[in-house]
Write a protein that binds this DNA or RNA. Structure first.
Lengths: 336, 336
DNA sequence: TTGTACGCGTTATCAT
DNA sequence: ATGATAACGCGTACAA
């Protein structure tokens, strides 16, 4: 093929095609102002030599990298728990970036050290934009990068002054639908297992629960978990102690609901006859619990998609929506 | 800070520190042959200017990118099923790359189109190495890239002539332990739900099952699934039809075992009294099934770790192990 | 429409 | 130990 050492360059293609480097560059980048015959000759030379553009050289002059970072700032253990949140976000982001021919650089940033690493990497403009799939809305890094002029989009409404565009789901709407469903079922003592109150998802879902109960005779009965199965099991036990007569519980995540289901079984309560249970997320597992879990579906893959779209707009110099809120939907199965 | 437009360059740091570019470069790259006083002056200038090296420029001359691609070549739906395989591999890879200060470029390559994309990207040397987290050992791409001189490591023993270094787990050993456990329990009719026979994991686990049964009075009873819960449920039904008297089943994945558990409950069989069940993987869920699942643990995060280590060695011009096989371990819970 | 020439920021080679 | 200076491969004004 190419006798010279290493990969062929634009220069070599030009020589082979009998044109200048500039012309080859135009062909490669799809400029319209190239004679058809010349374009063909160039493309033939490219094919024969097996030429592929050198990204580094291109970046150097264009000031773009054609890659986007996705930061998962959670502790390593939590990042890939089987609630499938992060994997689904990755999938959505990946789909959208692939369509735009951008690369996805994944950065796990649970530790403070890796947090710094993300900052340095982004500040050095090694990516054209940064996506934060955090659930802790109080992280200062997104705002910091945004102020440096780096395109940034978050998943989950940031706590405090929202200076960074974000994509979130309608937690309140989903919870409201769930509680109303329980109310319509005739349940009168509806408890909740809330998520951690330093995450927007945890806060909003508890707020939604309280709001939905406001106009009903049922009072709030609250236990707090941390979105893990274990914490759901523990919280359910506590709830049962607090109010043995409760007849329904809205659980802020399917994983916690799974844990709660185990506790209820141990306690001899039938679901949904004695206690109706509604979860949140609609993870795969929800279809396979015993009984199958009624839950609130949130479109996680779409969160990733929208985030990617927004950051691409930003990177292209276009304006992005300051906030995108995706709809949630109650999925009725057999637990309520 | 820096009045000039854009980010500061090596040149500007040099001017500020009153030295040459070369010296600044030496300081940045930790060369030992720089006078202490000068090093300090340079570092001060770097700090004041907020200088960060331009990766593209560096890559252009070093011919390295300091990033490694991790390719997940499965169909999008399967990639992130809740068996947590890929997320765990990602975690392991990420940990190891971070320690080496390399970036992780994630590429999902389920479709033929994205498959091509991976090939182009790697062939263009936009990464220093490629990791394949495939389970389909017959993919020609790894071998193809390896022949181009690109550092490549696979997870899962490739089918056919293994020309590419790989990291895998001891499927056979794990299955053997599982079946022997069942035998020791006094079970005499031990069936299996095998995985797809076009994946090494599926093949090896079935081979292990047959081998372990060879020296025992129990005969093989086989149904084949595709590692999904659904397929496990279906296969279990089939097994029950084939041999209503079976008293144990080794299931080639925890997800399929979960499905099988559902079928057994519907059929009125008690686990483990009537039918003992052993899974494979030891996913998080295995602790929470009813009853908790006895299973074979495989160190998935370590697979990722080892893959990253190997590819890093290769990228550094060092030799890598042609094959690394990680141990598996039987975890006894209550289903068997 | 095509070619010329310069600059992008860094590392590496060779003097000094 | 330090400083010039030549690549590295490409995009793009500007000129023709």
């Amino acid at each position: 093929m190419n006798a010279s050492r290493g990969r062929p360059t634009l220069e070599q293609v030009a020589a082979r095609a009998g044109v200048s480097r500039a012309t080859v560059s135009r062909v490669v980048n799809g400029s319209t102002s190239v004679a058809e015959s010349i374009r063909e000759a160039v493309n033939r030379a490219i094919g024969e030599l097996g030429y592929v553009p050198n990204l580094a050289a291109r970046s150097l002059v264009t000031q773009r990298t054609d890659s986007i970072a996705l930061v998962l700032p959670e502790a390593a253990t939590r990042v890939f728990s089987d609630d499938q949140f992060f994997p689904s976000v990755i999938r959505g982001v990946s789909q959208e970036l692939e369509a735009a021919d951008k690369q996805l650089v994944l950065m796990l940033a649970g530790s403070p050290a890796s947090h710094d690493r993300v900052e340095r990497y982004a500040a050095a403009r090694h990516v054209d934009g940064v996506l934060f799939a955090s659930m802790h809305g109080s992280d200062p890094l997104p705002g910091k990068l945004a102020r440096m002029g780096i395109p940034v989009v978050c998943s989950g409404r940031p706590l405090g002054p929202a200076t960074v565009p974000y994509v979130d789901v309608d937690h309140i709407g989903g919870v409201t639908a769930a509680v109303h469903h329980l109310l319509a079922l005739g349940r009168t003592r509806i408890a909740t297992i809330a998520g951690p109150q330093d995450m927007v998802a945890g806060i909003d879902r508890l707020t939604g629960y309280r709001g939905a109960l406001k106009d009903s005779p049922s009072r709030s009965i609250v236990a707090v978990g941390d979105f893990t199965r274990e914490s759901g099991a523990v919280a359910m036990r506590q709830l049962l102690d607090d109010d043995p007569a409760l007849d329904a519980v809205f659980v802020a995540s399917d994983l916690m609901a799974h844990g709660a289901l185990g506790t209820l079984r141990e306690a001899g309560r039938r679901v949904p006859e004695d206690v109706a249970v509604v979860g949140f997320d609609d993870i795969e597992l929800a279809r396979y619990t015993d009984p199958p879990l009624t839950t609130v579906r949130q479109p996680i893959v779409d969160i990733g998609r929208e985030m990617a779209r927004q950051v691409l707009r930003l990177a292209a110099g276009l304006p992005a929506e300051p906030a995108i809120v995706l709809p949630t939907e109650l999925v009725v199965r057999q637990s309520a």
